[in-house]
Design a protein around this nucleic acid. Sequence first.
DNA 1: CGTCAAGATACCGCGGTTAG
DNA 2: CTAACCGCGGTATCTTGACG
Length: 242
Amino acid sequence: AGLYPRLVRHAMTGFGSLDVMRFLGCKGLTTGAIHGNFAGQVVSDLKVRPEGVRIKHRVNGNSIKMYDKQGSVLRVEATINEPKDFKVYRPKEGGSADDLAWRTMRRGVADLQRRAKVSQAANERYLDALAEVDAEKPLRELTDGLCCPVKWKGKRARALHPWGQDVAWFEVIGRGELTLNGFRNRDLRQHLFACEPSSPEATRRQSGQVTRRLRLFRAHGLIKKVPHTHRYQLTNKGRAVV
DNA sequence: CGTCAAGATACCGCGGTTAG
DNA sequence: CTAACCGCGGTATCTTGACG
């Protein structure tokens, strides 16, 4: 549900011309650099039709497209109109049968088998790239906002690092016993600091740390203060992230 | 309703990074 | 190189909720 639009969006915005060329098997791309004398044109376009949305990437005359048939079947299709951009391992026409070499693909039926293979490979590369999106995108959307600073109550709050320095905090606020009734500054201190504070001053310092971190999470909308209490609860967003 | 302690906020200064 | 900026931590002060 809602997957296809995401795929389409990523196909349009996420796939660069290099990606498209890679799908269609253009050479010299393993290095990441485009071949100096490449003179072709790479185009991606999007069409909305009664039967669904179709997205098409084109390199010269060859293209790969994806569409949702009746909203139920995802279909990816490669079309080769310019076979000469591909190679076939074959003997010269009319030449001896053991004079094999990579030669230009021809338009006729002779190279049909190779042509199917090339197309299949292009489709597979395309689907692989999409599959990556499928798994990665929803997570991205959730965390993108967190990883950049936000304004809250006129003050700036830094970006979060869910996999870096903030990981311990995420783990603690995600604990079951704390989500049940919400949690207080004190509860977090208990979980986050191994040793009991040795002095009242240490307690104040820890409390300060926790307060600041709570403010940070509030700024990002992960937790909310429950009114008339010193307790906090995870928001839906927070639950999803943790 | 008053008091008190825990918590929240404001302010400052430090160290590190970046833009000019 | 310097100035501005950012994130952070310490702490003084204000706010709030619990409790008698």
